[in-house]
Amino acid sequence: MTSPSDPELRARALEALLIGKGLITEAAIDDRITLFNQRVGPMNGSRVVARAWADAAFKAELLLDATAAIAPYQFVGGQVDKLVVVENTPEVHNVVVCTLCSCYPLAVMGLPPKWYKDPAYRSRVVREPREVLAEFGLMLNPDREVRVWDSSAEVRYMVLPMMPQRLAAADEATRIAAIHRDALIGVVEV
């Protein structure tokens, strides 16, 4: 059996020390791991978007004060101090990043994908978003404004994508399944 890598060894030692000092318990950590593994995060965001598509009053509240609008859902998996939802329109496309450290609205969107944390995405999407989006397969009309939201403080951002025509007659469950996490970040459309 090979020795664990340095970071892994340090991580295990850290956990042991913290348990020994009474600051955490193994049970609490295991419970939280289970929660993260359930990965309900992105589904939460998709549910919110699907409801906004169907309920104009909810959509208005979501755009005005997203934190309050999602509070009744009591999403777990990380505290979102303040959430701002930015709406895609025919005139504007939004995309979200954290150039400094990859922070992400865990409660509504679960864990971020690996590419979101990558230095290439983080540095390029603020500089050449159209090029980056094209690499994701999203070709935007040059007349459409691109707004990049760099989460440099405690505010977290989620994109409200436009509903495509093909979902106009679909039921809520179908719509939720179609709203991919990447559309909530803004690198694709639904």
Partner: peptide, 17 residues
């Protein structure tokens, strides 16, 4: 640098975090 492509649906089964 190359970016990874979009993770395929279903939503609950994304790439390894």
């Amino acid at each position: 640098p190359e970016l990874e492509g979009i993770a395929a649906p279903p939503l609950l089964n994304g790439e390894l975090d």
